[in-house]
């Protein structure tokens, strides 16, 4: 006895299937993304027999319709409003491009003139150096702070907590000015036994010049944020991983650097990428110390020649290039640490 069967999931598609079954061959329209249903609808749009075992006929069987009619074609849903929206956006983009190109006030030829000027290139390199110093020392100190936060020692724990609270609370620009003016507070710095005799001392100005002050300020500020990022990363690693490493007798440091940290990197890298990109731009704050990073350098140039917009554009382009390169690098680093997680 021939048995008719139809899709039973989803009220909407069920109706379509029933309609199609009544009048084959029907053109069935489905929504994109319901892959499973599409197959079901195609096979339920005509009658089919159940084989002896009672299991539904598979797709191979249903291809041969008993009436000899071809199976109905499947047409996916059209999205006319997407085309309207795309057209609208295209017009707006064209307008923006035209506004950028045709308006002479942007002074593109001046931009071209200064984009690769030696003083600008030097400023770009200095910006990258400051970023690198801030990130490397920031994350080194941040990792130490994160481990202190996770340690069982209440003093270590609360000192790290206090550090993070303090350095996150004070604006970076204020911190930089403090380091820059450290010599006003402590004209000389001496090294020796704590509260005991000093072996040698040195003028603060000689030890902490403007560049050191800037790098120090950036790194110490960054460390507070890095600490929380690293801590979150370490906490994200399943407890069983540390337990398995301990059960295997793997030495403590090796547990951290071989087993736990590489897994923590999966959640550290995306946030750290944010931080590095933030710091590339954040170095522009250092201009208040009159250091020749990118933002300060373009100011110097436009104060001399008055081409403000063109030189701000030069800086914009370089910041864009630097952060774009870093975004690409981040993609590959994430892929590396995501290995083994299909």
């Amino acid at each position: 006895m021939p048995v008719e069967f139809s899709g039973t999931d989803g009220g909407d598609t069920h109706g379509a299937a029933a309609k199609a079954a009544k009048a084959p061959p029907a053109r069935v329209r489905t929504h994109r993304g319901y892959g499973g249903n599409r197959v079901l609808l195609a096979s339920t749009s005509r009658t089919a027999t159940l084989p002896a075992g009672g299991a539904p006929a598979d797709r191979g069987d249903t291809r041969e319709t008993r009436t000899g009619e071809p199976p109905p074609k499947v047409i996916t849903t059209r999205h006319p409003w997407r085309w309207v929206a795309a057209a609208g956006i295209a017009v707006l983009l064209a307008m923006a491009a035209s506004a950028l190109i045709t308006n002479p006030a942007w002074e593109w030829e001046v931009v071209g003139e200064y984009l690769f000027a030696p003083s600008v290139l030097r400023a770009v390199v200095f910006t990258l150096e400051l970023t690198a110093l801030g990130i490397v020392f920031g994350f080194l100190l941040g990792t130490v702070l994160a481990l202190m936060r996770l340690s069982g020692n209440p003093l270590l724990n609360s000192v790290a907590w206090g550090y993070i609270a303090l350095f996150r609370s004070v604006p970076l620009i204020l911190q930089l000015l403090f380091w820059y003016n450290l010599a006003l507070l402590y004209p000389r710095i001496s090294f020796g036994v704590p509260f005991g005799p000093a072996f040698f001392d040195i003028g603060t100005m000689d030890l902490i010049g403007p560049v050191t002050a800037a790098a120090l300020g950036l790194a110490l500020h960054q460390a507070a944020y890095a600490a929380e990022i690293v801590r979150a990363g370490l906490l994200s690693v399943d407890h069983g991983q540390r337990e398995a490493a301990a059960a295997l007798g793997i030495p403590r440091a090796r547990q951290l650097f071989r087993i736990i940290l590489p897994q923590a990197m999966r959640s550290i890298v995306p946030t750290a990428g944010n931080e590095i990109i933030g710091l590339v731009k954040g170095t522009s704050v250092v201009y208040i110390m009159a250091l020749p990073e990118l933002f300060y350098q373009v100011q110097v140039i436009y104060n001399r020649n008055g081409r403000v917009i063109a030189l701000l554009l030069v800086a914009t382009i370089w910041y864009l290039v630097m952060t774009s390169v870093m975004s690409v690098a981040q993609h590959y680093i994430e892929r590396y640490y995501g290995r083994g997680r299909g």
């Binding site: 399943d238 069983g240 398995a244 087993i259 590489p262 897994q263 290995r339 083994g340």
Partner: peptide
Amino acid sequence: NFNLFPHL
């Protein structure tokens, strides 16, 4: 739960 090291 096996606790294999997933990154190795």
